[in-house]
């Protein structure tokens, strides 16, 4: 049974969706100069990857992978990607916490959260001969 590319794409909609979200996150990181928005972009990207993994583990008609002794023949979904993403979420939280701490510190130094303004303030400091 040969499917056209469009039909295959429609069939694989969770993967396509996760990669589109990945692109949106990537665009957010690259185009925004606000540091907090950059961090949000990173979080969007990470979430999209989580979606990709969880979609990989899904089986149509499967039940959550908690052994039900009453139903020995149950079809469980793949537990491995879900388990991996628990680790992934912890990593994402750690990075977010550290980045927020850095943003607080940068705000104390420069009084702004905009990368371009920070760049300008630094250049002015250099030109006046009193680098930070």
């Amino acid at each position: 049974m040969e499917l056209t590319i469009g039909a295959k794409l429609l069939n694989n909609y969770p993967f396509l969706g996760s990669l589109i979200i990945f692109g949106i996150g990537c665009y957010t990181v690259l185009s925004n100069s606000n540091l907090l928005k950059k961090l949000l972009g990173i979080n969007i990207m990470e979430s999209s990857i989580f979606l990709f993994y969880v979609a990989t583990g899904n089986i149509r008609g499967g039940v959550p992978p908690i052994v039900d002794l009453a139903q020995p023949e149950a079809l469980y979904i793949n537990p491995l990607p879900t388990g991996l993403m628990l680790t992934g979420i912890v990593v994402s939280i750690s990075v977010t916490g550290f980045a927020l701490a850095l943003i607080i510190k940068l705000y104390r130094f420069y009084g702004t959260m905009d990368a371009n303004e920070i760049f300008e303030i630094r250049n002015e400091g250099k030109n006046n001969g009193s680098s930070s």
């Binding site: 295959k8 694989n12 990669l19 990945f22 990537c26 979609a55 899904n58 089986i59 149509r60």
Partner: peptide, 18 residues
């Protein structure tokens, strides 16, 4: 990048298949 992703997604094994 999204264009290449689409080509790749079309090749992935069908979603939810046992």
């Amino acid at each position: 990048a999204l264009y290449v992703f689409m080509l790749a997604v079309a090749e992935l094994p069908p979603y939810g298949n046992v």
